[in-house]
């Protein structure tokens, strides 16, 4: 059952990713990306990472992608402006499928990577409480550095768009 669900969501994620890359309309690309985000959220949920799954939907599929869509619609991006080449997308799909025999052995090589060494997940793994606990204990410093990073990024965005030079 789990394997079937995994395969389904993985297929949806990959399909959405391919759709995002090859579609000619910016809006279609964005909607495809939302599909990818949802499928990823489902995969996270299957790994017991419930908080990450919820955040994936709320932050990525929700907030960020909606913002993307707004920007695309406001700027009214058309097909011609969006891309440099107009190569036939069937060839792109053929190329991806052609690479499969090359990629599959590589993937097989990694999947023998035995999971036996993976440490046992703690009982509260993936819950909000569990994530919060490690965020304020073993990852306290990275958590604080993230705030400096966000401040720098925020100020930087304003500088690049709004600063006037004399």
């Amino acid at each position: 059952m789990e394997a079937i669900l995994f395969m389904t969501f993985a297929a949806v994620a990959i399909g959405g990713a391919i759709g995002m890359v090859i579609s000619r309309q910016a809006v279609t690309s964005a909607v495809n990306l939302i599909v990818v985000m949802f499928a990823l959220a489902a995969l996270f949920a299957m790994q017991d990472a419930h908080l990450i799954a919820a955040l994936q939907v709320l932050v990525y599929a929700g907030a960020i992608m909606v913002l993307f869509l707004f920007v695309i619609m406001l700027l009214n991006v058309r097909e011609k402006e969006g891309r440099a080449t107009t190569r036939n997308s069937t060839w792109q799909i053929v190329a991806i499928l052609g690479l499969t025999p090359v990629i599959t052995p590589v993937m097989a090589f990694f999947s023998v990577a035995d999971v036996a060494h993976a440490p046992e997940a703690p009982a509260d793994f993936g819950t909000t409480a569990g994530v919060g606990k490690i965020l304020y204990t073993s990852y306290l410093l990275p958590f604080e550095v993230a705030s400096v990073l966000l401040l720098a990024a925020l100020v930087g965005a304003v500088i690049l768009t709004k600063t006037k030079l004399r």
């Binding site: 990275p142 550095v145 993230a146 400096v148 990073l149 720098a152 990024a153 930087g156």
Partner: peptide, 10 residues
């Protein structure tokens, strides 16, 4: 990683 990102973004 976060240090590298702070450095890069700025």
């Amino acid at each position: 990683f976060l240090g590298l990102e702070t450095l890069s973004v700025a």
